[in-house]
Amino acid sequence: REPLSASMLASALPHVQKQMIGDRLYPLIYALHSELAGKITGMLLEIDNSELLHMLESPESLNAKVEEALIMLQAHQAEEQTD
C-alpha cells in the first residue's frame, strides 16, 4: 500500500480521515500491543492528523506515543479500581 499523504486525506470527510489513519495505525500498534490495539488506536486518533501522519512515518514517535497511551490507560484503570 502507498503511504498515506496529506493530499489523500484532504479529499475525505473528517471522520473518514480518522478511519483512514486508523487503518494504517492499527496494524503498527497491534504489533506492539495486540490486546490493547483498538483502545490505543482510538486514543491516538484524537491527536491532530498532521502529527498522526508524522507518527506513521516515524516508528520512534509512534512508539513514544503508544507508551504514553499505555501509561495513561493504566493510571486510568488504577483510578477506577480505587474508587
Binding site: 490495539a37 491516538l44 486510568h76
Partner: peptide, 21 residues
C-alpha cells in the same frame, strides 16, 4: 506542546483487517 491522551476515547474498529481493499 500539550498532548493529552484521553483514556475514555472510543475504541478503534479496524475495518481494513476484515475487509482488505
Amino acid at each position: 506542546r500539550k498532548s493529552t491522551l484521553n483514556p475514555n476515547a472510543k475504541e478503534f474498529n479496524p475495518r481494513s483487517f476484515s475487509q482488505p481493499k
